[in-house]
Nucleic acid binder design. Structure first.
Lengths: 223, 223
DNA sequence: CTTCACACGTGAGTC
DNA sequence: TGACTCACGTGTGAA
C-alpha cells in the first residue's frame, strides 16, 4: 500500500496534472484484492470493486478540482486548507455582498443627486429644435463664415412653466448676434437674459416662461 | 460495522445536530480493533488510533459544515451535490464579479454625466463658509428679522480658476441687499454678477475667479 | 442489477 | 512526539 502513498504524495499541489497512471492502476489492484477480500475471490466481484474504486477516485478528483477552482477565484486565501478555502470563499461572498450593497447605495445617492437639481440635457432636444426651425436656425448655426460652436446647452426647471436655459459656446465674430437671433427666432417668452463672455467662451442664460405644462420635447417644438 | 452506517445514515441532512454519541463511540471501537488490526492489540496503539479516528471525524464534520455554510450563502443551488455546491459557488462568484463590473460601469457613467456639467454641490461647503466668516455671514444668514432662506446653492467649474456660483433663495424684504453683503464679505474676485427675481424666488449668478487651483474645500475657506 | 454520492477508518506525510 | 491534513479503499443506501 505504500506505493499508493508515494504516487499521490503531492496530489493536492499538482492535482491539475492529468495523471494517466490512474487508469492503469485498477489492473495492479487486482493483485491486491485477495489480501483483504478473502470471502469473494471471484473475478466478477473484484471487477465491480475495481470499478467502484476508480469511480470513487474520479469523484474525489472532481471534487478537488472544483475546490481548486474555487480557490482560484477567491483572492487573499489565508491557508491552503480545504476547510479554509471554503471558509474564505464564504467570507469573500459576504464581502462581495457588502460591496454590492455599498455601491448600490452610492449609485442611488448619485441618482438622487442628479434628481435634486433636475437639469435636463438640452443636447438631445437640439435636433428637434433645429428641425422645427430649419428655415432660420439651421443656417444660423451652420453658417459657413463662423458657425456657433456649441459647448454646453441645458435647461433647468425652476418653477412651474419657468425654465432657465443656459448655453455655452465658443466666442467668434458675430457669435453674440447670432445667438440672439437664434433665441429670438424661437419666439420664447423671455423674462430676463444675460450674456457673459470670458476666455474665449460665451455663456447665455435666459429665463423663459412656457404656456404649456412641462414637457421637454414639446417645449422646443413650440414655436 | 453496520451500526455505524445506521448512526450516520442521515449525516448530511442533519449535520448541524451535535451528536454526543460520537465521543462514546471510541470505547465501542476497542472491541472491533482486533478485527482488522491484528498486529497491534496493545491498548496504547489502539488509543492512538481511536484518537486519530475521532480527529478525522471532526475534520470531516468541520469540512461538511463549511460546505453547508457555503451552500447557505449561494442562491439557486442546482443540486445538493458536494461538487455541485462548489461549482455553483464558483459560478455565483463569477456572477457577482460581472454584476460588480456592470454596476461600476454604471456608476462611472453617472459620475461622468455629473462631470459633464460639473456642478459641485455647495451645500456641504456652506458650513465651512459659514464657519470661516462667522463674524459677518452667520448673523446675516440667520438674522431674526428676515433670514436668507436658501433653496439651492452650487458652483460650476467653467475654466481653470473660473467658476459660476448660482444661489437660489426665497425673496423677502432686504434679501437682495443681504445677499450682496454676503458675497461681498467673501472678498471674491467677481467678473460679472446677475440677480433675477421671479415668483417669490431670487437667483443670483456670479462669475468668480480664484487665484488657487481648484479645490472645493479650500475655495471657501479662502478670504 | 448498476450507478452514484456519501461517510467511514486508515496509513502516510507534514509541522 | 503529538496534532493536523490528506488520499485512499470500502461498505452502504438511494436512484
Amino acid at each position: 500500500m505504500e506505493n499508493f502513498g508515494e504516487e499521490y504524495k503531492n496530489y493536492w499541489e499538482n492535482m491539475f496534472f492529468p495523471s494517466e497512471d490512474l487508469d492503469g492502476w485498477a489492473m495492479d489492484h487486482e493483485g491486491f484484492s485477495g489480501y483483504y477480500d478473502s470471502s469473494s475471490p471471484d473475478g466478477g466481484a473484484s471487477s465491480a470493486a475495481a470499478k467502484n474504486i476508480v469511480s470513487e477516485r474520479n469523484r474525489r478528483k472532481k471534487l478537488d478540482e472544483r475546490l481548486y477552482a474555487l480557490r482560484a477565484v477567491v483572492p487573499n486565501i489565508s491557508k491552503l486548507d480545504k476547510a479554509s478555502i471554503i471558509k474564505d470563499a464564504i467570507e469573500y461572498i459576504h464581502h462581495l455582498h457588502e460591496e454590492e450593497k455599498r455601491i448600490q447605495a452610492e449609485i442611488l445617492d448619485l441618482q438622487s443627486q442628479n434628481l435634486k437639481n433636475p437639469t435636463y440635457d438640452f443636447q438631445q432636444y437640439l435636433p428637434i429644435l433645429l428641425r422645427s426651425k430649419k428655415t432660420r436656425t439651421q443656417h444660423l448655426l451652420h453658417s459657413s463664415t463662423s458657425p456657433i460652436q456649441l459647448i454646453g446647452l441645458k435647461v433647468t426647471h425652476m418653477a412651474e412653466k419657468t425654465f432657465v436655459v443656459s448655453l455655452t459656446c465658443n466666442k467668434r465674430t458675430d457669435t453674440m448676434v447670432k445667438l440672439c437671433e437664434v433665441f429670438e427666432s424661437l419666439k420664447l417668452k423671455v423674462i430676463t437674459a444675460n450674456i457673459s463672455s470670458f476666455s474665449g467662451t460665451l455663456l447665455k442664460t435666459v429665463f423663459i416662461q412656457v404656456s404649456l405644462p412641462f414637457c421637454p420635447s414639446s417645449m422646443f417644438i413650440y414655436n
